[in-house]
Design a binder for these strands. Structure first.
Length: 572
RNA sequence: GCGCCCGUAGAUCAACUGGAUAGAUCGCAUGGCUACGAACCAUGAGGUUGGGGGUUCGAAUCCUCCCGGGCGUACCA
């Protein structure tokens, strides 16, 4: 909060001296070390250099133009030209008083809300969701919630893979090898079995591959029987997807699958051909990107030599639909990093097809899911850990722990705690790392109940709640100010103020791990405060102020965890 | 071959427009429950950021060359 004010004052001061300066990079950041101060800017050094000024002289001039006595001690110049700001307790106190009254929670919503479409999860029909799908789902949903918290309009769209060549094989399997009992028991597992079976047969027998192609063509031509089977496979799959989403508490505004765009595909290809963007090559319609370094040797195929469209075409139609329907300023795709080339092609192609579309096209990619052996999980062969089993085991392990730590809690409550902690642990493990890093799947890492994990944060929250349970019905007095004379109180208070900055970093770079780090540090500050500053035993104004600090910290923890898609519990 | 990504403590990871002494957790060692929950807190050991060169007042971060790994690379998504 205060840092926004400081930043604006700083930027105005810079403009007074250098009216043409680009102030977008004149930013204020927390100091890396408390001994330097609370906030710093290093932007003046580079700015001075670019304008052939002495950085320290320039810094002195800027300071003369900034009026911050309401908020800070005199600004200090350090090293080659850093400015260090040290907050006054009064300013800190005033911000906390407002927060305690519920006027704000240390962030501000966007001055100009944007519309953002976020595409995540996107599982394929007839394949069970596995651990590989969870990262897109969890990341995408956390990003959606963060954008929304900051006041943006978000449209979430689950672009389900409900069309494509795999249905030829599936149809052959369905007609020749379907086990009805198995289908009833576990529809996705049975469909997966059919796919693998036919896929193997195709490798051995050309005629089966031919019949799969025939079934696919019949489906595409609208054959009644094939359409009915296809529709049934979609319904069965979506039913199971919805169960997973319900357990994960993940939602979507739209679920427009690939098939939604079928009747637009031919038109897209025709337009690309008519505009001279696509050209014929080896029987297919392709687009070359000769003046693009990374794409030079990689044409995008928009129509296969058999006349069928493929996923590039579908994605173009999808993007067009999103542009027309929601007029977004940004479209975010949350997928794994292996699709980078595809999205580079897609974005470059869309730029040529719809010049001046003005949309920020953003591929938010994440690292591979690795097994214990360091090899990536395979989707169509090898060991697959099913999402449902994964969630079950997380809950079971958490249940064991809570039963050991707190055997006196009612069984129902222990189950509820285990659900929140177990699922939270999985989600948090996915969110807390840099998304570009590969994800090493490991039960112990995912479900560890110590360290930078969901259980640690949830535990911090239950400690807050525990204080208020003890307090009972006693009504909370509103502090008129905060003394913050204990080190731990001061550190906690200063950390609370940084929340808004962190939220903006999350949406700027689509990296929820910044929020995880922040909450982890917040829990740490609260832990130190909790150990060293008695709350209920304190008297008078000190007690009032510490209770208010607990309340605000609890609200912030809860808001932060909810934004990440985690639930909270009262005790654990 | 070409393109993209990665390489940080024993392990798992972090590091905010390039920024000040590269931070956490696990594990290891030590101390703390007659103060609100010890699933906690505090302290300590542990680093040539794969290697060389360059740009810069300043490099884990940018450029370049090596070494090692992953992924992609014309009709799967």
């Amino acid at each position: 909060m205060i840092h926004f004010v400081l930043q604006e004052k700083l930027q105005r001061a810079v403009l007074e001296i250098l009216p043409d300066a680009d102030i977008s990079s004149v930013l204020i950041r927390p100091c890396p070390e408390p001994k330097f101060g609370d906030y710093q800017t290093n932007a003046l050094i580079g700015l001075a250099k670019r304008n052939k000024l002495n950085p320290r002289d320039f810094a002195t001039q800027v300071i003369d133009k900034i009026e911050v006595t309401d908020f800070c001690q005199p600004i200090e110049i350090a090293g080659p030209g850093f400015l260090n700001f040290r907050l006054k307790i009064d300013a800190l106190s005033a911000t906390l008083v407002d927060a305690a009254k519920g006027k704000h929670l240390f962030y501000r919503t966007a001055l100009k809300p944007r519309t953002i479409v976020i595409d995540y999860s996107s599982p394929n029909i007839a394949k069970p969701m596995h651990v590989g799908h969870i990262r897109s789902t969890i990341l995408g949903y956390a990003l959606a919630k963060t954008f929304r918290l900051l006041g943006h309009k978000v449209v979430t769209d689950n672009h389900i893979g409900d069309w494509g060549t795999q249905f030829g094989k599936l149809l052959v399997g369905w007609k020749q090898h379907l086990d009805h009992k198995a289908l009833e028991r576990d529809a996705l597992a049975e469909m997966e079995r059919l796919y693998k079976l036919v896929n193997n047969d195709c490798d051995k027998d050309e005629s089966i591959l031919a019949s799969a192609r025939k079934e696919l063509v019949k489906l595409q031509d609208g054959n009644t029987e094939n359409r009915a089977i296809w529709r049934k496979m979609i319904n069965l799959s979506r039913h199971q997807f919805d169960e997973i989403y319900s357990r994960l508490r993940v939602e979507f505004d739209e679920t427009l699958g690939e098939s939604f765009y079928n009747n637009r595909l031919k038109g897209v290809v025709d337009e690309l051909m008519a505009q001279g963007i696509a050209e014929e090559s080896e029987g297919a319609q392709v687009v070359f990107f000769n003046n693009h370094k990374a794409l030079k040797k990689q044409p995008a195929i928009v129509q296969k030599s058999d006349g069928a469209a493929n996923y590039t075409t579908t994605d173009l139609a999808t993007l067009e639909h999103r542009q027309k329907t929601w007029r977004p300023s940004e479209v975010i795709y949350v997928t794994d990093g292996r699709q980078q080339l595809h999205f580079q092609q897609l974005f470059a192609l869309y730029d040529r097809w719809k010049p001046n579309h003005g949309i920020k096209l953003n591929h938010v990619w994440f690292g591979a899911i690795l097994g214990e052996d360091g090899r990536p999980f395979k989707t169509r062969s090898g060991e697959i850990i099913r999402l449902a089993d994964l969630l079950d085991e997380a809950e079971q392990r958490a249940y064991k722990t809570v039963s050991k730590k707190n055997p006196d809690l009612p069984k129902d409550e222990r189950h509820e705690i285990a659900r929140v902690v177990g699922l939270g642990a999985i989600k948090y493990a996915d969110l807390s790392g840099n998304r570009h890093s590969d994800y090493v799947f490991n039960w112990d890492t995912m479900l560890a109940l110590v360290g930078n994990t969901a259980p640690y944060l949830l535990y911090a929250f239950t400690r807050v709640r525990s204080i208020f349970r003890k307090l009972g019905d006693e009504s909370l007095a509103q502090p008129e100010s905060f003394a913050l004379d204990q080190l731990e109180e001061l550190a906690l208070a200063k950390h609370l103020l940084r929340f808004g900055l962190v939220l903006e970093q999350v949406v700027d770079e689509c990296r929820p791990n910044y929020l995880c780090n922040y909450l982890y540090e917040l829990a740490g500050h609260f832990g130190a405060f909790y150990e060293n500053c008695p709350v209920l035993q304190a008297k008078g104004e000190t007690r009032t102020q510490r209770l208010a600090l607990c309340k605000i910290t609890g609200q912030l923890l809860q808001t932060g965890l909810e934004t990440l898609g985690l639930e909270t519990i009262e005790r654990m």
